[in-house]
Amino acid sequence: MNSHVIIQNITILAPLDSPNTDGIDPDSSDAVCIENCYISTGDDLISIKSGWDEYGVSFGRPSRNITIHKLTGHNINGSGIAIGSEMSGGVSEVHAENLYFFNSSTAIIIKTASGRGGYVRNIYISNVTLSNVETALRFYSNFSEHPDDYYDRKALPVIERITVKDVTGDNIKVAGFLEGIEGASFRNVCLLNVTLKVTSESPWTCSYVQGYSDSVSPEPCKALKKIPEDVSDCYSLSNYLWCLRTQKRNSWLHSW
């Protein structure tokens, strides 16, 4: 629960064989810049959260305006960048670019479940290089652990306006496993200029998702339609990265 934080030029080395060893976890935080970092962990390198089930909904403090710039690292059981699974207070305006993940389980993941509620929207990830990664992009929608029995079982998450572009990868097992939830909104997922050398015979698996694609190899699911020229549903980066814009006037920021 922080605001206006810059985390720069740090190295985090955690035991690769230990679970629950995340690198950096912005939780219900606003205006966070993570830049020029190297992270090696047994779990997620960066995990963006905003509260768990009914507690995240009632607290109502989203994570937003999160910038990740120049991140390198690897993991064993987690991901390079994760959103969720505790995302019930909402996550939006996440901008990540210049990422290099290697020898990892998953590169990018959004984790949620029925009963979470909340939203993940306006996510922009670009300029990603992958090497020896099992899954490049994943929506994991059955992350079903709950804090107690008082959560709203009808609370469905909203996942929308997720753009991933300019991605290359070698020795990738699965390009994408995009698992939505029946009756929930997983829409406006946009994949642009993605080239992955995949070893699996089934590079893409999609369910209950909708979106668009252009210049994607191997060819994605039919649910990700060819993008039309006049589409406005894909989230685009309208403003330059927050941390780069504010470095010249960061006397009011906390620097870690």
Rank of each mutant, 00 (worst) to 15 (best):
N2D: 02
S3F: 07
V5Q: 00
I7S: 12
Q8M: 08
T11W: 02
I12M: 06
I12D: 01
A14S: 10
D17P: 00
S18Q: 09
S18K: 00
D22I: 06
P26T: 00
D27N: 04
D27K: 04
S29N: 03
D30K: 04
A31I: 06
A31P: 11
C33M: 07
C37H: 13
G42I: 00
D44S: 14
L45V: 02
L45F: 00
S63H: 09
I68Q: 02
K70F: 15
L71R: 06
L71Y: 01
L71E: 01
H74N: 09
H74Q: 05
N75V: 05
I76G: 06
S85A: 15
S88G: 05
S88C: 06
E93N: 15
E93D: 10
A113H: 11
A113S: 14
V120E: 00
N122M: 09
S126M: 10
N127C: 07
V133S: 07
T135Q: 05
E145H: 11
H146Q: 02
D152L: 06
A155W: 12
P157N: 12
V158Q: 10
V158R: 05
T163I: 02
V167Y: 11
V167S: 06
G169Q: 01
K173M: 01
K173N: 00
E179G: 03
I181W: 09
I181P: 07
G183M: 04
A184H: 13
R187Y: 15
V198R: 08
S202C: 08
P203M: 13
P203S: 12
W204T: 05
T205F: 15
V209F: 15
Y212T: 02
S213I: 05
S215A: 06
E219P: 14
C221F: 08
C221A: 09
K225M: 11
K225W: 11
I227N: 02
I227S: 06
I227H: 01
P228V: 02
P228K: 03
V231G: 09
D233N: 08
D233C: 14
Y235K: 07
S238A: 13
N239P: 14
N239W: 10
Y240S: 09
L241E: 05
W242F: 14
T246M: 15
K248H: 09
R249P: 10
W252Y: 11
L253G: 11
H254Q: 08
S255M: 14
